[in-house]
Simulated assay, not measured.
Amino acid sequence: MALVTILSDFGDNDYYLPAVKASMLSINPQLNIIDISNQIRSFDIAQAAFILRSTFRDFPKGTVHLVAINTTGGMAEGYIGVKLEEHIFIGPNNGILSLLADHEPGIMVKFADLHLKETTFPAKDILAPIAAKVASGAAIHDFGGPLQGFKKMISRQSKVTKDQILGHVVHVDVYGNLITNIRKADFDKLNPGKYTIDFNREQLNRLNHGYDEVEPGDCFAFFNSLGLLEIGIYHGDGAGLLGMKMDSIVYINFET
């Protein structure tokens, strides 16, 4: 039996999350349901996509991921199931599932009208039952046919030249650390040995290996476990103290 994960903007203080879990457990009480996060900012597809893209591969292949972000806003585009890298994703066709990888899913299914209901709570009444049945052994093909209109969103990419990498902050974590879309692979390919990292009136000329290589209150920069450049202030709220936020620009300038 597959695991089921939940990613939502429900929070933990309302009835939405337990209602969705109850819907799945009423179909199969043996399901193992794991929360990825239910603290996504309301309707924030970019934040949800970053967290899901950063974590789904750490779960066993075959895991079913229930994605409940802006599900009521997805009624016009419909609800879908996709198979990507041996993982199954169940959610609205609102673009979030197009941001999980740099390639399209191998299988995409649009759920048939037979499985859709008139509801103000589609995560509970539409998506949860399908996720529970797929995790219990059903195939996503059992619930619909090939998806033709896969809604796509384009994530912001870093700009790379031989002299510079220009990137943007794509995520601010709970500590105020700023994660960018500058990839270690690009840096390693271009790095001549001397460079500066420039962001909002700050400049660093070295990379760290971890947070504690600088003194509390000092800036750090390193490539994190995702292979992305992360900057911040040790034991401080980097976003607030540096005056940076989502989409702020970060440069790496190479000196030849």
Rank of each mutant, 00 (worst) to 15 (best):
K110Q: 13
I107A: 09
L147K: 04
D102E: 12
V174S: 15
S54G: 11
K83E: 15
A22D: 03
D247G: 04
K21Q: 15
G74E: 11
A139N: 07
D247R: 10
I34A: 01
L204G: 08
L114N: 14
A135N: 07
N38Q: 15
E215Q: 07
G240F: 06
N93Q: 08
P122L: 10
K159C: 06
V214F: 02
V109S: 12
H65N: 02
I33D: 00
G91D: 02
D188H: 14
M153W: 08
M108P: 00
R201W: 12
A68K: 02
T55D: 04
E213W: 14
K21R: 14
V134A: 04
F43C: 04
K162S: 11
F56K: 03
R53M: 04
G236C: 09
N177R: 09
I130G: 10
I231A: 08
A19S: 15
I45F: 08
D58Y: 14
F121A: 05
D188N: 15
T71S: 15
R156S: 12
M1R: 09
I126S: 01
K245M: 11
A101N: 03
I6K: 00
L17T: 07
D102Y: 02
F199L: 07
F111G: 04
Y79P: 02
P122Q: 12
G210L: 05
D102P: 00
K124F: 08
H87P: 01
Y251V: 10
N93F: 09
L66E: 08
I249L: 14
T119Y: 02
L31G: 11
L116Q: 13
G95W: 05
L190W: 06
T71F: 07
P60M: 11
A221R: 00
N177C: 05
I34Y: 04
E104A: 12
V250E: 09
V134E: 00
P18R: 10
F10S: 10
S155V: 03
V172K: 07
F222N: 06
V172Q: 04
S37D: 10
H87W: 10
H103V: 12
P105G: 11
G167Q: 05
V214D: 02
K159Y: 09
S248C: 12
V109M: 14
A19L: 10
I252T: 13
T119V: 02
E213A: 14
Y16I: 04
M108I: 06
I154L: 11
L17N: 06
T256R: 04
L66C: 10
S42I: 09
A221K: 00
G240I: 01
D247T: 15
M246D: 10
D186A: 13
H168A: 12
V4M: 15
I197Y: 07
Y195K: 06
G74L: 01
A128F: 05
D35N: 13
I126Y: 03
F220Q: 06
K117T: 09
G167W: 05
D198C: 08
D12E: 14
K152A: 13
V134W: 03
D102L: 04
N28F: 06
D218T: 01
F50Q: 00
